[in-house]
Nucleic acid binder design. Sequence first.
DNA 1: AATATACACGAACAGGTGTTCTGTGTCAAG
DNA 2: CTTGACACAGAACACCTGTTCGTGTATATT
Lengths: 236, 236
Amino acid sequence: MMMARKKKGLSDRHLKILEVMQKYQDENGYPPSIREIGRQAKISSTSVVNYYLDQLEEAEYIQRDRKVSRGMRLLKTAAGDAYELGDTSGNSGNEAFLTIPLAGRIGAGIMALPASDFNYFDVDSGVDVARSLLPEDTSDIFAVEVDGESMIDAMINDGDIVVMRHAKDARNGEMVAVRLADDDTMTLKYFYKEGGRVRLQPANPTMEPIYVDNPKNLEIQGKVLLVIRQVGASPI
Amino acid sequence: MMMARKKKGLSDRHLKILEVMQKYQDENGYPPSIREIGRQAKISSTSVVNYYLDQLEEAEYIQRDRKVSRGMRLLKTAAGDAYELGDTSGNSGNEAFLTIPLAGRIGAGIMALPASDFNYFDVDSGVDVARSLLPEDTSDIFAVEVDGESMIDAMINDGDIVVMRHAKDARNGEMVAVRLADDDTMTLKYFYKEGGRVRLQPANPTMEPIYVDNPKNLEIQGKVLLVIRQVGASPI
DNA sequence: AATATACACGAACAGGTGTTCTGTGTCAAG
DNA sequence: CTTGACACAGAACACCTGTTCGTGTATATT
């Protein structure tokens, strides 16, 4: 029984209600009624749900509009709570967009990709991306900002935001972030396993591929899912 | 009694209801009831509101859960809504993301940018983009899909989605979609006015700029705001 | 033991809410 | 003119929903 409660108070039922509210809101686009909360949180009486909702409002986790059906809204996104409840991956994909944690910057030599289990709470910034642009499975996703022009052969420029998923291997045709142990460089390339060797194909068709014969030299860090470039400032 | 009905339906009352729904949702965190819509949209009867909600659901602008109070949600926030309703700028607490109309494809020679006043409701597909990635002013925004590899010098590849704003001129440093009347080509370049001539600088720093001396030869179609690339399929 | 407090249950109530039915008026096609 | 589709209003109804009250059960406090 881990007891790492962040805030004082907040029993299991409080957390469960917050979770139900968030999940219901995500799935339906509107908040649940008291009875629906009770049903999903396995609380038989509406007054008990009301009892906890009052406490959650007192603690400023939610806000209520009395006398209005479904008149409640979450004040804190409580993503942390959801994660604490073990809902890291399959969060039921109906929310319109995801806030993807911006985990750092990557450049040519430097390799600052976060560990697969890095703490989502530590990131202070995130990128909002519509779910319609992402795969169904949104687990293990993070984003990095590109620093410098070392990714030009991947058609990726300074300042671009790359959304990727943690992975240790890849299928042919996927774009991966790989580290070449030899020269300790980090690049983004299309991955092709061809017999005993691996071909790393730049996205820019005018550039030549790299061939890697020794598997030990190749270290896959993740798969690229999306590239976002905000234009506006001048580069030169 | 002016009866200026739009070509594809969506009367003033449809738009008004959509506006009320969006505004109410933004302000309260939950959808309005039928009677609240009626009050704000100046419709006295609940059945009339219901009448229009059914039509809006039929047209897939909203989704309804019958028998559930406030059981409705907006499916599109539509940049077009805000635009057509004349609320181009200050709609502070709008939805978190916009559905930007995907207006067509652009390639090397072909130029299929839509007119500035094309009907946003007619487009059947759109791109969902978080407002946090866009400028505050979301008027005159549309998106095109890039066809072919003619934009490689702009670090933009086949299949990329380019979000842009209609414009006839540009400031230095902005990336613009320009048509060169001479050879009737369409390219994306950074714009710099240098004395009497214009320098068109490719985003790819390894490539050389183009200089245009005759202003008549240069036709600005729009400013680029955002580039989105969904990775996953193999290009080669 | 008696009391207080927090938590929980179920029932009843008043008002909110979606639905439906009837009716009215307009307008264009027959 | 008649008809029918459409837009709209109002009222009635059944169900949903939040609130409240009475009651019960632990646990800790006195």
